[in-house]
């Protein structure tokens, strides 16, 4: 019987994951530097828009400022329009591949996990992206928060089979 190794890996790799590599060909490791450049730009925007500020997150959850809603809302609209353009005109990647976005089906984890993450977001004032930017901006103690987030991810992986999905 023929085994389909690559598919199995894709299934595990894409489990409970939004951000992923859907490229067919394999890139040389150093070419990953271009994603680091995108990350640098993203990190600068996160700091300058103050979305990595614990204070801005508290304002958002206490409905005391429009800022965060404006940032997230206009980010969604911009992404929506550009993704629509990519699909409409069948724009290819720089390697000439068609753009793939695998839809992620619903499961109950979205609700339970979402509520837990929301609580963590309000406590730390940071979702995962801002955690990295906070550390870079000099809040060294955020390293502890990040390591704790890695631990949380690990524990989830450990007990995943016993959680309702």
């Amino acid at each position: 019987m023929k085994t389909v190794e690559t598919n199995t890996d894709f299934e595990v790799r894409s489990l409970d994951t939004m951000g992923m590599n859907e490229m067919e060909r394999r890139e040389a490791t150093f070419l990953n530097l271009k994603y680091a450049v995108v990350g640098v730009a993203f990190g600068i925007i996160l700091v300058k828009s103050e979305v990595i500020s614990w204070f801005r997150i508290q304002e958002m959850f206490r409905l005391q400022s429009f800022h965060m809603y404006g940032v997230i809302g206009s980010a969604i609209v911009t992404a929506m329009i550009t993704v629509w353009l990519i699909r409409r005109f069948n724009i290819k990647t720089v390697y000439g591949e068609p753009v793939h976005i695998h839809p992620k089906p619903f499961n109950k984890g979205l609700v339970f996990g979402g509520l837990l993450f929301g609580c963590g977001w309000a406590l730390t004032g940071a979702c995962p992206g801002p955690l990295y930017a906070q550390i870079g901006s000099g809040a060294t103690v955020t390293v502890v928060t990040l390591l704790s987030a890695v631990a949380g991810t690990w524990v989830y992986g450990k007990i995943r089979d016993r959680l309702p999905h």
Binding site: G114, F117, L123, L131, V150, A151
Partner: peptide, 8 residues
């Protein structure tokens, strides 16, 4: 908070 962010 960090644990909840990672787990959630």
């Amino acid at each position: 908070g960090g644990f909840l962010v990672g787990f959630g």
